[in-house]
Structure formats: structure tokens, C-alpha cells
Amino acid sequence: VRQEELAAARAALHDLMTGKRVATVQKDGRRVEFTATSVSDLKKYIAELEVQTGM
């Protein structure tokens, strides 16, 4: 499950970095929206997932 969450989070980051205004991911069973202003929060979430998956 964590691998899927990590892939979704990375895709969301890619979307935001390429101009999409809002990206949505499932985080702990709930839907979370990230915007360009919350990229740093999304990067932290990705880092947490990488630690949890041993990457």
C-alpha cells in the first residue's frame, strides 16, 4: 500500500511542478489536496513515505 501512496504522491508533485493548480492524494485513508503553495508539505509527505518503504 505504501508503494502505491508513494507513487501517487510523486505523481501529484509532478503535476504541481508542471503547472497543475491542485493535486489530490489519499493520505491515511482520507483525501488531501495540495497546491503550489503546499509543495514543501507534499515533499515532506513523500520523504516520510520513502522512509516507511525503505527507499
Rank of each mutant, 00 (worst) to 15 (best):
Val51Lys: 13
Val1Pro: 13
Leu6Arg: 01
Ala47Ser: 10
Gln26Ala: 08
Glu50Leu: 07
Glu5Gly: 05
Ala12Met: 03
Ser40Lys: 10
Val22Met: 09
Leu42Lys: 00
Ala9Asp: 00
Lys43Tyr: 09
Asp15Tyr: 04
Ala9Thr: 02
Gln52Cys: 09
Gly19Met: 00
Arg31Phe: 15
Glu33Asn: 06
Asp15Ala: 08
Lys20Gln: 11
Ile46Thr: 00
Lys43Ile: 14
Phe34Ser: 03
Asp28His: 04
Thr18Gln: 11
Ile46Trp: 01
Val1Cys: 12
Thr24Gln: 08
Gln26Trp: 09
Leu6Trp: 03
Lys27Glu: 04
Thr24Tyr: 09
Arg2Ser: 10
Ala12Ser: 03
Leu6Phe: 02
Val25Tyr: 00
Ser38Trp: 01
Tyr45Cys: 05
Val25Met: 05
Val32Tyr: 09
Glu48Pro: 00
Gly19Asn: 05
Ala7Tyr: 07
Val39Asp: 02
Val25Arg: 02
Asp15Cys: 07
Glu4Ser: 12
Leu6Cys: 03
Ser38Arg: 05
Val39Cys: 07
Ala7Asn: 13
Arg10Tyr: 08
Asp28Leu: 01
Val1Ala: 13
Leu16Ile: 09
Ala47Gly: 07
Lys43Arg: 12
Arg21Trp: 05
Gln52Ala: 12
Ala8Phe: 07
Glu5His: 09
Asp15Leu: 09
Thr37Val: 10
Met17Ser: 06
Glu4Ala: 13
Leu49Arg: 01
Tyr45Ser: 02
Ala12Arg: 02
Asp28Cys: 07
Glu50Trp: 04
Gly19Phe: 00
Gly29His: 04
Leu16Gln: 01
Ser40Glu: 15
Glu4Thr: 10
Arg31Pro: 15
Val32His: 07
Thr53Trp: 11
Gln3Ala: 12
Gly19Asp: 05
Arg10Asn: 06
Arg10Pro: 00
Gly29Tyr: 01
Gly29Ala: 04
Arg30Ala: 10
Thr35Pro: 07
Thr24Asn: 07
Ala36Phe: 10
Glu50Ile: 08
Leu6Ala: 03
His14Phe: 06
Gly29Trp: 00
His14Tyr: 07
Phe34Thr: 03
Val39Glu: 04
Lys43Pro: 01
Thr35Asp: 15
Ile46Arg: 00
Lys20Cys: 08
Gly29Lys: 03
Thr37Gln: 13
Glu5Arg: 08
Asp28Val: 02
Leu6Val: 04
Ala7Trp: 09
Ala47Met: 09
Met17His: 06
Val51Trp: 14
Thr35Gly: 06
Ala47Leu: 12
Arg30Asn: 11
Leu16Ala: 02
Ser40Arg: 08
Thr37Glu: 15
Gly19Thr: 03
Ser40Trp: 03
Thr35Ser: 08
His14Asp: 08
Ala36Asp: 12
Gln52Met: 14
Gly29Pro: 01
Gln26Leu: 14
Ala7His: 09
Tyr45Arg: 03
His14Arg: 10
Glu48Val: 08
Thr37Ser: 14
Arg30Asp: 08
Gly54Cys: 10
